[in-house]
């Protein structure tokens, strides 16, 4: 007689194979999202237009500010425009890959959808954080790149190869850190039931990334570097491109990213223990 407890071969030969399987799966998610998007062309166009208007109006405070002064704490107008570009890239990436998932967190938990996720042979945390992709938001990444280039050209910055590497690594760290913070906030749903408003709070706090860290008072700077690490996503990358950043902050960013991921993993495990399906 066969029982469910019989020996089976594991899906993965080793850890590397497991990671590779997840990467392949993610590529499928992406391909599916692109196909899906072609069904909703109006949505694509709306996202593009709204994104452009938002970008344009988002620069208004910066432009007004520099209408009254030539530089603030060593930042010129062009450099801040480059920073707005990086901000747009980062928020665009978050809106594409992370937001569609974490905004569903409440439904996953309160309607018991998590059950079917837990049964799948994939890391449930991976699935919950990266399953859905909003391809249309990538247009904001593109417009952000354009703004970044405009800012760099205006400020006469010619970043070398090493500086670009620094910048890209820092943006990566910033993305991981912000995703970790948002995930941790969302996983509170295990205890709070409804976390939809947390996404709103997160997005309004990210707004601080529109401005260089130096524009804030000391206490707030520390907060924006270590507690809500938006500094790694915008200020540090631009300073790296400007060439006045050593490898120290880059190492710090990588270190913090690893710590943050470990912590989020712990919160997730803890939360999962308290989960007792919605329907049963």
């Amino acid at each position: 007689m066969n029982t469910h407890a019989e020996e089976r071969t594991s899906l993965d030969r080793n850890r590397l194979h497991m990671h590779w399987r997840h990467v392949r799966l993610w590529r499928r998610f992406f391909a599916q999202a692109v196909v899906r998007e072609t069904q909703y062309r109006a949505h694509f166009l709306t996202t593009l237009l709204v994104g452009l208007v938002q970008l344009g109006l988002g620069i208004v405070p910066t432009l007004l500010l520099f209408g009254f002064t030539a530089e603030v704490h060593g930042w010129s107008r062009a450099e801040v425009i480059a920073l707005v570009g990086v901000y747009q890239i980062v928020t665009g990436l978050i809106a594409t890959f992370v937001a569609p998932n974490l905004n569903r967190m409440t439904t996953y938990l309160t309607e018991g959808e998590l059950d079917s996720v837990l049964l799948r042979p994939v890391s449930s945390q991976f699935y919950l954080t990266l399953r859905w992709i909003n391809v249309a938001e990538l247009t904001n990444v593109a417009s952000g790149l354009v703004v970044l280039v405009i800012g760099l050209v205006q400020s006469d910055l010619r970043p070398g190869f090493g500086q670009v590497v620094q910048g890209v690594v820092l943006v990566g760290c910033g993305l991981v850190l912000l995703t970790a913070v948002w995930s941790a906030m969302s996983f509170l749903a295990f205890w709070l039931q409804s976390v939809n408003p947390i996404g709103v709070v997160f997005l309004s706090m990210v707004e601080a990334g529109r401005y260089p860290l130096a524009f804030f008072p000391g206490v707030v700077r520390t907060f924006l570097t270590f507690a809500f690490p938006v500094a790694f996503a915008t200020t540090f990358p631009v300073r790296a491109l400007a060439g006045d950043l050593s490898w120290g902050p880059v190492a710090l960013g990588l270190g913090l990213a690893v710590v943050a991921m470990t912590l989020v993993r712990l919160v997730w495990r803890r939360g999962l223990l308290t989960y007792s399906s919605a329907s049963s």
């Binding site: 002064t69 603030v72 408003p197 947390i198 309004s204 601080a208 804030f216 008072p217």
Partner: peptide
């Protein structure tokens, strides 16, 4: 939820407040 929503509501004004105060202190 309302408390959290209102927290979001004052975030952006506070950010703007800090920015403009810095600009003023910097001689704008």
């Amino acid at each position: 939820a309302w408390i959290i929503f209102m927290l979001a509501n004052i975030c952006v004004p506070i950010i703007s407040l800090l920015i403009w105060r810095t600009a003023l202190a910097n001689g704008a």
